[in-house]
Structures are given as C-alpha cells and as structure tokens.
Amino acid sequence: MLLTGDGRGSSGGRRSPGGRLARTVLLVLLVANAGWALGASAAPADNADRPEPALAQLRTTPPIYRLVYTRSSADERIDTAQQRLVGLCMGRLGFTYTAPPPAAAGQPAEGPRPFGLESLDSPDTGEAPAVREEQRPDAAAYTRALYGDPKKRLVGRGKWLSASRPGAGCLAEAEQRLMGDARQRWIQLRVLLFEAEQRSRDLLDRDAEFQAANREWQRCMQRTGITASDPLRLLAALPAGSDVRTHPATRADTRCKTSTGYLRIAYTRLAVVQTEVLGADPSIVRDWRRILARQDAAARAALGDR
C-alpha cells in the first residue's frame, strides 16, 4: 500500500504511538496484502512474573483491531481464493506463481503493540523483519504481470492520507473478481481505519482512567529504581542491541503491567475510545462488513463453496 499524507497524522503533542504503531500497521498491510506499498533493583511480587494475557486473550479487544488484525474463516477463505486467482492469471501469462500460505483463522495478525511489551516471550524489538525478494531472470516481466503498469494505480483517500493499489495486472484482476466496483472503497476504508487507529491512540492519552493506570505503572517502576513516563518511551530509550527478554527495565515493565493490571485497563479504555471514534462515521464499519461479505461470497464461488 502506498500511503501519502499532509503530515497531520496525529492530533496533539505525541505521535501515536511513538511512530512504531505506524510502521507496524504499514508492515502488516504490506505482508498481508502483496502489492500494497506505502510505519534494577527490587522487583514486584513473585506472582507478577506471570505476564498478563496477550491481546488475543483479553476480554475487550478494541473494535479496529478486531476488524483489521483478527483473522476470521472468511479472511482465510478470501486470501486463499485471491491467491488461486492470481496464480491462474499468472499461469495464463506463462509464469509460475507460488502463493504464500495464508495465516490461520482465529488468530490475530502481528498487529500493533500500542502499549509496548506485553510479555517477554514474544518481545517487540521495533525492528521490521527483512523481506526476501525472489531473484528471477525475468523479474521485470514477472512484476509487470503481477502488478501491471506502475502508472496505473487505484487510489483511495482518507481525511489526510491516501493509499493506492495496482490498477492492472493479475493482482488487480483477482481483486476485481472478489470485490467488483467496491475495490476503491475498500482501499479508502483501510486508510480511514488506519487514521481512526492513530486518532484513538492520541485521544487515549487524555483519558482519565488510562492516565491513572499509567501513574500506577510509573509508581511501580519507581519502586524498582527505574523512572519512566510510559512503557513506549521506556522501550524506545533502551540502548541499541539490548535484549528485551533479559534487560532489568523490560523485566520490571512487564511485571509492573501485571501487578497493576495495566494492559487490561489500557485495552479496555482503548476499546471505548475506538468505539467512539468509529461512531463518528458509521459507514466505515458498515461498508467494511458489506464488502467483506461480498468478497467471501465471491471466494466461496471461486473455491467451489468450500
């Protein structure tokens, strides 16, 4: 996905959240949708060593995260059908296309960590994984067949950002089969949800309950001898090359999140704020679900109603 904007990506002082969220969201969209281009001292009690549940296990999952990051059986079916359609198209043009395996349904994609580390078992180092590019002797022709003329792009615009997808090529043909004339609106919805996600994280910083939870976390951290304003800044301030699984600051961070119930409160309040932000334009969720259902119906047909 190619994202462009006018620099008004956040309201208020601090970027939401620290720039890492934007990079993570863009990476998720890039990996999930080929062709998108656009990012030590005393510890708390022993029972605090057990991390709070990860996002997928929390009782209240923010609605934008449910829409964008949690995969359903329909998402898996749509991905499978799209990759099959792309493969058939590429085959007609004389190319062998190997589709990446779709992520399993019922599991969240590797989405944003808006509150820093959630456990020490799957640390977020903030580093984007390297993307391996297939080396082909006919790379230019292959890319042209898959993505079409780079000058032909379908653009969807949000309030301050815009995104584009290939307007021609096998990827565009497959998406056209699944979405028909709703393709441009789907692109726009991805942008609007990205903007709503950023806006919600900014607004959360003004939420009284979240502020109280952050103060409790700060006091817990101070008892370990560590002063930090919030978990994201703590993570960003680690020296380069730090192992977040063993560093005293990150160990204290995850323990304090557990002992204070930080993640539970933070995600619950974020869910409230995201609901309010989405409520300002009900057409976003309505159209998302409508187009998703349209894609699922087309996917079932393409796969023989599997």
Rank of each mutant, 00 (worst) to 15 (best):
P150R: 14
N33I: 13
Q211L: 03
R66Y: 01
A266M: 03
G7D: 01
T24V: 12
Q57I: 11
L55S: 08
V31L: 10
D207L: 06
K257R: 13
A236G: 04
D124L: 04
V244C: 10
R136D: 00
T70R: 11
K152D: 05
R92M: 06
W288E: 06
D287T: 14
R59C: 07
G5P: 04
G304I: 07
P239A: 10
S73H: 10
R183D: 00
L27N: 13
T227D: 12
A56P: 13
Q188Y: 02
D253W: 02
P62K: 09
L292G: 06
A104S: 11
Y65W: 03
N214W: 00
E175G: 09
A22W: 00
Q198H: 09
A298K: 03
L178N: 04
R219T: 07
D281F: 00
Y142V: 07
T246Q: 10
V68R: 06
C170T: 11
G106V: 03
R183S: 05
C89P: 07
V272R: 08
V25M: 08
T4D: 00
R255C: 01
V285Y: 02
R255M: 04
Q218N: 14
R185S: 12
L161R: 09
E110H: 13
E133L: 10
P53D: 12
P53T: 04
G7V: 05
A43T: 07
T98P: 01
A128M: 09
A34E: 02
Q184P: 05
S119K: 08
S283P: 08
A32P: 08
A174R: 01
R144F: 00
